[in-house]
Amino acid sequence: DWREIAKLAEEALKKQQPVTVNGQTFNDPNEIKKLLETAQKAI
Rank of each mutant, 00 (worst) to 15 (best):
A6V: 14
I43V: 11
K41Q: 12
A42N: 15
Q16I: 07
A6H: 08
V21R: 00
K7W: 13
N22M: 14
I43C: 07
G23K: 04
Q40F: 08
L35W: 04
F26N: 01
T20V: 10
L36E: 02
V19S: 02
E31F: 10
K14S: 10
L36C: 03
P18S: 09
E4V: 11
F26M: 07
A9S: 06
R3W: 15
N27G: 04
T25H: 09
V19W: 02
N30S: 13
N27P: 03
I43W: 05
V21N: 00
K15S: 14
N22C: 13
R3P: 13
E31L: 08
N22K: 06
L36G: 01
T38K: 10
A42F: 15
G23R: 03
Q16F: 10
A6Y: 15
A12Q: 02
E10R: 08
K14Q: 09
E10G: 07
V19R: 00
N27E: 09
N30M: 11
T38S: 12
L8F: 06
Q16W: 07
W2G: 02
D1Q: 11
R3F: 15
I5P: 00
L35G: 01
E10S: 10
D28K: 09
K14W: 09
K14A: 13
W2P: 04
T25G: 03
D1Y: 15
K41N: 14
A9M: 10
K41G: 08
Q24W: 10
E4A: 09
N27C: 07
K34T: 09
P18I: 06
N22L: 14
Q17M: 13
L36P: 00
Q16P: 04
T25L: 08
K7E: 08
A6R: 08
W2C: 04
E37F: 05
A6N: 03
E11V: 06
P29Q: 08
I43M: 12
K15D: 09
N27Y: 15
N27K: 09
W2L: 05
I5E: 01
K33N: 05
I5F: 04
L13E: 02
Q16H: 13
E4G: 08
P18C: 05
K34E: 10
D28R: 04
Q40T: 09
F26V: 08
P29M: 14
K34G: 04
L8T: 07
N27H: 15
E11D: 10
K33M: 11
E10N: 09
K15Y: 14
Q40H: 12
K15L: 11
W2V: 03
A42P: 03
Q40D: 05
L36Y: 05
A39P: 02
N27T: 05
D28A: 05
T20G: 02
I43H: 05
Q17H: 12
L13Q: 02
A9R: 01
K15T: 14
K41Y: 09
N22I: 03
V19Q: 01
D28Y: 15
L13R: 01
K33Y: 09
I32S: 00
L13N: 02
A39D: 02
I32P: 01
K7Q: 11
